[in-house]
Design a protein around this nucleic acid. Structure first.
Length: 577
RNA sequence: GGUGGGUUAGCCAAGCGGUUAGGCAGCGGCCUGCAAAGCCGUAUAGACGGGUUCGACUCCCAUACCCACCUCCA
């Protein structure tokens, strides 16, 4: 029950949320966990507030449009973090919201003559489908902003009553529905990104540049004032300070009635920052372990979320994690290139495992350079892993998913654990995986050359389990080691959500249809039977040293898209469909 | 203007003050009837200039260039 399930659609997380955590399940490796914290600007030791349980909130999508590669990267990054925590034996409460009411949703829906709620729900489902195809585990809970209105209104009132927010009145004195957070009233504003003006105490500084900088914006070299807030509410002259931001936005005459909620301070809808603060608080409590999101959310979104929560008297997130961009030629991929890299296109043109590998194999805080070689390189990795798992699984009994998922972090190679403990250093962790694949390939070659059976290189020290596992001195034969290594490789890959035999991949990770004995699919069965017949003929020809005929059969199959490889255990074929 | 990040071999990408990162693509070899796969070996690094040090890609300073956030944004 503490192990990650292999089906992203099953709510395995549901089973792990317990009100009574059991610390003794947690791996020893958890003690060495270190993570970068945005607020502290450093990699710091991580330990959860509640022993045995990690509560994390990740900003989810604003569902105004279809997901693109950047959304997928962020989702995969935090999915890997979550899977590592699961592997460490924690109960992980993973909350990822859906922002389903927002300026852009309203604007785009209006432009497309759609109901905003229909648009939001449609794209929410598109996001969910993309996550599922990539093997991103379903969140423990996925709240929608529109589902938390009472709590949001309550938070606004709480901030007003505590003197950290103010209502803009209409001319007649009634509340307008516009409510702002009073930044100068909160002296810690800027604690996350150190971005604040911190000028709240200064007086008589009417230098326009300084006022602008206190808010962030200024003019560029050409003198153009390119940083002015775009939202009408944020431009309001009624704001007490340029840094103040909207908690509640008054309903506008041209907005649909379905987008308006009644509140004591006037009808309207919540500001963006308020939504996340409310949802995180409702499901994770006054204080929780990790708040994550994309790098661009650092400021102002997370800064404002934090200010709201702290001003409301909550401890909020102890740890802030931010995932970096996917870049093309060094530049952030978004509007300009976003169209060419929609999730739909990516997953339509490439096997999901390959996409996930490409997204997961770079450190979450590093820019991921997306070039022409990225996908081919990931595809090569897929083939290597696929061949290895298949070949090893032929030499020994393939471990079950339960065995793979059942390994604790403490059972895994210590270098792998050290890498993951070190702020989720996936590059170094993957190096361990590939080193073990190579080592095991040597053993596999040895299995087929009987006389060399004992010549195999000893398992290097780095490949030994991190802790607690018995070293197999008496089981010093190749097959035991092959089996153990295969289990390690798959289990380590599983930490990345890349176990080839787990859902949603189920063995096909390179996009090639394998000949699977006993396949359920009747088409695959028929194909296998036909191809096997031709291969039998070829084997006979080869045995008779009639290589012309053998090669002719291979060419014939190649012409049909079927690749034949002769392995030690006989011919292996795959179909590039 | 403020804030933060980056510059590693053909490409992608890590750790580390002194010992092979890894992947992809090369090259040489083994294996193979041939091929593929696999294995073995191998070249090409650390923007630039100083400094600290017995020793720096790794620490410090300066310079150049690139990028991002401050506007919806993963």
């Amino acid at each position: 029950m503490t192990n990650p399930g292999n089906d992203p659609l099953t709510s395995e997380a549901r089973l792990t949320v317990s009100t009574v955590p059991t610390p003794q399940k947690v791996a020893k490796a958890a003690a060495g966990q270190r993570l970068y914290d945005t607020a502290r600007h450093a990699v710091v030791p991580f330990s959860p507030i509640t022993p045995g349980q990690v509560r994390m909130y990740v900003c989810g999508a604003t569902v105004d449009d279809a997901p693109h590669i950047g959304h997928m990267r962020a989702a995969v990054c935090f999915d890997v973090v979550r899977r590592w925590f699961l592997r460490l034996g924690y109960d992980v409460v993973f909350v990822r919201n859906v922002t389903d009411i927002d300026d852009k949703i309203l604007r785009k829906a209006a432009a497309a003559h759609e109901q905003w709620w229909a648009r939001a729900y449609h794209f929410e489902r598109v996001f969910t489908d993309a996550y599922r195809r990539l093997g991103v585990l379903a969140p423990t809970y996925e709240p929608r902003a529109t589902g938390q209105m009472p709590e949001m209104i309550e938070l606004v009132q709480r901030l007003i009553s505590r003197g950290h927010a103010y209502i803009i009145p209409n001319a007649d004195g009634t509340p307008s529905g516009n409510v702002f957070f009073d930044v100068p009233s909160w002296k810690d504003y800027g604690e996350l990104t150190h971005q604040s003006g911190g000028h709240s105490g200064t007086t008589g500084e009417d230098d326009e540049g300084k006022i602008a900088d206190a808010m962030g914006p200024s003019v560029d070299e050409t003198g153009a004032d390119k940083y002015n807030p775009a939202d009408a509410a944020d431009l309001s002259d009624a704001k007490h300070d340029p840094r103040d931001f909207a908690l509640w936005k008054a309903a506008k005459p041209d907005e649909p009635a379905t987008a308006v909620w009644q509140a004591p301070f006037g009808a309207g809808r919540p500001g963006w920052h308020l939504e996340c603060t409310t949802m995180a608080h409702r499901y994770l409590g006054n204080e929780f372990d990790i708040h994550g999101g994309g790098l661009d959310l650092r400021f102002p979104h997370h800064e404002n979320e934090l200010a709201q929560a702290r001003a409301a008297g909550w401890g909020f997130a102890r740890h802030w994690m931010h995932s970096a961009w996917v870049t093309a030629k060094g530049e952030k991929m978004s509007k300009s290139l976003g169209n060419g890299l929609s999730a739909e296109r990516l997953l339509g043109d490439n096997p999901a495992w390959v996409v996930r590998y490409a997204l997961a194999s770079v450190h979450y805080r590093a820019m991921l350079e997306w070039g022409k070689d990225t996908l081919p390189s990931a595809l090569a990795a897929a083939k290597r892993v696929e061949r290895f798992v298949q070949a090893a699984g032929q030499a020994i009994r393939q471990p079950s998913r339960e065995e793979v998922a059942g390994l604790s972090a403490d059972d895994l190679p210590k270098d792998f654990v050290a890498a993951m403990d070190n702020d989720i250093d996936v590059s170094s962790a993957l190096a361990v995986v590939f080193a073990l694949i190579r080592e095991t390939n040597q053993l596999l070659a040895g299995e087929h050359t009987a006389q060399n059976a004992d010549r195999s290189a000893p398992t290097s020290d780095a490949m030994r389990p991190a802790a607690g596992a018995n070293t197999d001195q008496t089981e010093n034969n190749g097959r035991r080691r092959i089996r153990r290594n295969l289990l390690f490789v798959r289990s380590m890959l599983d930490v990345f959500g890349l176990d080839p035999l787990a859902a949603p991949f189920d063995g096909n990770i390179s996009g090639q249809t394998q000949a699977v004995p006993g396949a359920d699919d009747p088409t695959a069965k028929a194909l296998d039977a036909l191809v096997s017949a031709r291969l039998a003929a070829r084997q006979k020809a080869r045995k008779d040293r009639d290589f012309a005929t053998a090669d002719a059969i291979r060419d014939e199959l190649a012409g049909l898209g079927i690749t034949v490889e002769d392995t030690a255990s006989g011919p292996r074929w795959s179909f590039a469909g």
